[in-house]
Computed example of a mutant assay.
Amino acid sequence: MMRVLDKKAMPDFMTTLWNSWNNRNNFTFRGKEDEAQVIWDKARTLSQEFRICNLINDPLLSTNPTVKRWEKPPKGFVKINFNASVCNNRFGYGVIVRDEDGFVLSCGRDFKEVSSVEEAECNAFEESIKLACKLNINNDVIFDTDNCCLVNKVKYQRTYITIIGTRIKECTKAFVKFKSADLVWKNQSCNLVADLICYKICTEAYTCFFEMDYPLDIHDAVMCDAI
C-alpha cells in the first residue's frame, strides 16, 4: 500500500482508517455512530493538524537517521557481544570479547543441542559468562545482545518461574565474579561481529575458539567496528 500511495495520500489513508476504527468502537461500546462524511471530515482535519505540527516542530523520527554501530566500552570495561542462531536443526552461538580499545581478547563459536530459540539465547549468555571466567576477567563487564526478550527476562527474572528463568538467575548470580556486570540490549547493527560468527558456524559447521589468530573475515568485521 505504501508503495502505491504518495506521501500526502498515505497520512490521509491512515487517519481515515483510525477514525473508522474509532467510530466502530463508539458504536460497539456506546451505541453512537457517525456518518461517513463526518468520519472523513475528522480524518482530514486530523491529517492537516498532523502536517502543521510537523512543520512547526522537529519531527519525532529524524529524516536523516544515524547508523548505529558497535561502540567501545568505557575505560576499564570489557564488552562481550554474543548471539545465537538456528543451524541445521541445531542451535549455534557466537561470542566475541573486546577491551576498552576494541582489542579482541577472544572469540569463538559452538553447537549446542537445545529445544528452542529461547534456550539457545540463554545458552549463549551462559557460555559468554564461562568464556569471561576462562579468560580470568574480573573487572567491569558489559554483555551485549540484540535479543530484547533475554534482557527482559534478566530484568524481571522474579516473574519467570520456569527452567529458563532458573538458568537466567544462575547467570546473574555469576555476576559476582566480576567487579560489575550488566546485560544490555543493543540494536542488531551493534552486534554484527557476533552475528557473523553465528553465520560462519551455520555454513562451516565446526566448533572453534580464537584469540589472536581469528579468521580474516572476522578480522575485517572487527576493524570496521573499531574505525
Results as ranks from 00 to 15, higher is better:
V114T: 03
R69A: 06
D110I: 13
F82C: 13
N81D: 03
G108W: 14
K112C: 11
L55Q: 13
W70N: 00
V114I: 04
K72P: 10
K79Q: 02
C87G: 14
A43E: 00
A43L: 00
Q48S: 04
F111M: 03
K72V: 03
G108I: 04
P73K: 04
F91I: 14
D101H: 10
V95F: 08
L46H: 03
G94S: 04
L46K: 06
V86M: 11
R98A: 05
T63L: 15
N64W: 07
V67S: 01
F77K: 05
V117N: 15
R109V: 05
K79D: 01
N89P: 12
V95P: 11
R69N: 02
G94M: 12
C87Q: 14
E49F: 05
G102M: 09
I52Q: 12
R44V: 13
F77R: 01
K68V: 00
E113Y: 11
V67F: 04
S116C: 14
T63R: 08
V117A: 15
R69P: 07
S115T: 15
K68H: 03
I52L: 15
N88A: 11
V104D: 08
F103Y: 15
G94H: 10
Y93H: 10
P59M: 01
C107K: 06
F77I: 05
V95W: 04
R69V: 03
N81M: 06
V78P: 02
K72F: 11
G108Y: 14
W70E: 00
L46S: 02
T66M: 10
G108L: 06
A43I: 00
N81L: 06
S106T: 03
R109D: 07
G102N: 07
R98T: 09
L55I: 07
W70G: 02
R44I: 15
N83V: 02
P59A: 02
S62E: 03
P73I: 03
D58H: 04
I96L: 15
F91D: 13
E100P: 01
I56E: 06
D99P: 01
V114L: 06
L46D: 05
S106H: 13
F50V: 08
